[in-house]
Design a protein around this nucleic acid. Structure first.
Lengths: 148, 148
DNA sequence: TAGCTGAGTTCGAAAATCGAACGCAAGGGA
DNA sequence: TCCCTTGCGTTCGATTTTCGAACTCAGCTA
């Protein structure tokens, strides 16, 4: 099975993993959540090659993670890439990466940005919880049942 | 900046994103969380090329996400790949992917596996919360502060 | 001694990525 | 009108990755 077939497997974990597991895609999403919207800005801040950037943006458009939105600047019509609701829902994925990075990869120096809850100023962290009893869960608390 | 340099950026989001954003790495972790431990089994269930599998496993070993553990079978000593504590801590990342997949990519048919809290049988979901007030957060509730 | 098995390694072909140049449409200014 | 600039891609040849099949090697086993 080639890599791309995981994108069509009937598994709700392998399909997102195959989509976001392509090179640059997670870094692109990070940039989008940090506020970057335009082709030129992605290219400049990430130093990704233009052809690959085009490809990744198109994949995310096709998957309905991003949408192209027209806007006006100097009286000209341009387009920018924005998250859809589906795209915004990827926030927990990025936050889970960051929570892990904070714990296990924190560099000695300062970070490049900080996150705060607008209402109370608190920090942000990702966690896994039980939909019934609301307990916080680790891998050991969860049982996997194969469906044959 | 080539892709690999993101792995050494002083950013607790871009470093994990660059590590897990390499092709096959997320799918490999999925397989590990589902219980696969041995080279041959990874190769068979994922149909990844052997040389790339070797490379990805070595990267995860170097990053201390996996460890090689000896075991005995038929009186022979072999090795298997197991999660370290750092690796197990990636569980929220995988669960965030799955929670997203359940909502936005659920296939019409059944899934390949189900997850249940051992204690109460409930489902599993990832979420983002405030470390102060414990409110559940979305991207809109969070303010990004750049550190220059 | 020969064969099998798990775990890689090697190597030529194919695919993905890179970087630099090119294309193009919409203004703006002369 | 003609030329210049900007934003947003596209194209193309060179370099890296990935692929897939064959090969290696060590430790049993028959």
């Amino acid at each position: 099975m080639p890599y791309s077939n995981f994108a069509s497997m009937p598994c709700t974990l392998s399909r997102p993993a195959a989509l976001l597991g392509e090179r640059w895609t997670l870094l692109l999403l990070r940039q989008i959540f940090l506020g970057t919207r335009r082709f030129e800005d992605f290219q400049a801040t990430m130093d990704i090659s233009r052809s690959v950037l085009t490809d990744r943006l198109n994949v995310l458009l096709q998957e309905n993670v991003l949408k192209r939105v027209p806007y006006h600047e100097d009286g000209r019509t341009r387009h920018e890439y924005r998250l859809t609701e589906k795209g915004r829902d990827l926030y927990p994925v990025l936050m889970a990466l960051r929570t892990w990075g904070e714990k296990w990869m924190a560099p000695d120096e300062e970070e490049t940005f900080q996150l705060h809850h607008r209402d109370c100023g608190g920090g942000v962290r990702a966690k896994v919880e039980c939909t019934e009893c609301a307990a916080e869960l680790t891998a050991r608390d969860v049982e996997v049942t194969a469906r044959p």
